[in-house]
Computed example of a mutant assay.
Amino acid sequence: MDLNLLFPGSIVYVPGMMDAPTSSCALLVENGRKILVDPGGFPSIKILEERLTSLGLSPDSITDIMLTHFHLDHAFNSIFFPNATIHLHANYKSRDYGSFGPIVGSMYLKIIDSWRRVETFNGGVKIMEAIDVLESPYHSRDHVSFFLETENHGKVFICGDVCARQIHYHEMRKGMRSDAAAAFVTDYFERADTVIFSHDLPLFKR
């Protein structure tokens, strides 16, 4: 399996006016499958299209989308891939999206309605025969992280929002945090050659 980081995530926040984060997005290629991990939110539409086009890929060529969790900054762009099977934690079904508000809740439901095929998982399983799904419900009840071995980047830990930025990892590593999330992150960080943070540049350890 090969991994290509299409773009790193970011956080854009203007107090009282705008909160527009978008997640990192990775492309995995394995045996004819083209898999997007967290295709991102509305602010990354342009860079997502540019990076896929530069690789000679169209939206129709994406076969699968894996979500660390179902938040708009990670999942909104899934609406543009009609042939993709969506893979996410089964707990996404337990939310009352209408309670998010008449506009935001409607957006979540529109995204769900756009999905033609959904395959749910729980933590502790291996999907696509190559990707370990790790229970990491410290951010939301449907949150997971992924751990996989690649040909070009070694062992890769995709944190999701359990460790969104490099500074969060360094706080955990230095003992400034000692909760269950910190223990989880530092354990898998030690096993990995490459760490993809959801809202920051990645770390390449080799």
Rank of each mutant, 00 (worst) to 15 (best):
G124C: 03
V195Q: 05
T53E: 15
D161M: 05
Y188F: 13
C25W: 02
A75Y: 03
P102H: 03
H74V: 11
E49I: 14
V133M: 02
K93S: 14
K46P: 01
I47L: 05
V156S: 02
D193Y: 12
F70H: 07
I131M: 01
D113K: 14
M1H: 13
D19F: 15
R116N: 12
F147A: 01
S114I: 06
A183H: 15
M1S: 11
S140W: 00
R206D: 11
E129I: 06
P102G: 04
W115D: 08
E151C: 00
S94Y: 07
G154W: 06
V162W: 07
A75V: 08
I35V: 13
I131S: 01
S99E: 05
S106M: 10
P15I: 04
A180K: 10
V14P: 01
D179L: 09
D96I: 02
D179H: 11
A180H: 13
S44K: 11
K110S: 15
M107N: 03
E50Y: 07
R177Y: 07
S140T: 14
L201M: 10
S99K: 10
R95V: 08
G105M: 02
V162Q: 12
A90T: 09
D187A: 11
E129F: 00
L72M: 12
H71N: 12
G123D: 00
C25A: 06
L28A: 05
L48G: 09
P59R: 08
S106W: 08
Q166H: 07
L36M: 10
L88D: 05
E171Y: 07
F147P: 01
P202M: 12
N152W: 00
F184G: 13
D179K: 12
A26V: 13
G123N: 05
F197P: 06
I111H: 04
L201A: 13
L201K: 13
A180D: 13
L3K: 03
I167Y: 08
I86R: 09
P59H: 09
H139Y: 15
I167Q: 13
L55C: 04
I196K: 04
S61M: 09
Y138F: 15
I62V: 07
K126C: 06
D193H: 14
D96G: 03
C159Q: 09
S99V: 00
D132H: 03
E135M: 05
T63H: 04
D64K: 00
I127P: 00
G40R: 04
R173Q: 12
S136Y: 02
L27A: 04
A164W: 05
N83P: 02
L3G: 11
K126L: 06
L148I: 10
E50H: 07
D60Y: 10
F204N: 04
V195I: 13
A90H: 07
D19G: 04
R95G: 00
P102Y: 03
K155R: 15
E50P: 02
Y169R: 06
P21N: 00
F76D: 05
C163N: 11
P15Q: 03
G154H: 09
A182V: 05
E171G: 00
P102A: 08
I79Q: 14
N91H: 14
N31M: 01
K110V: 12
R206A: 09
A20G: 00
T68Y: 02
R141C: 03
K110F: 15
T63E: 03
T85S: 14
P202A: 12
G101P: 07
D2Y: 10
C25V: 01
T85G: 09
K93R: 15
D73Q: 07
Y13H: 14
I45C: 09
P82M: 06
R33I: 02
P82G: 08
L28W: 07
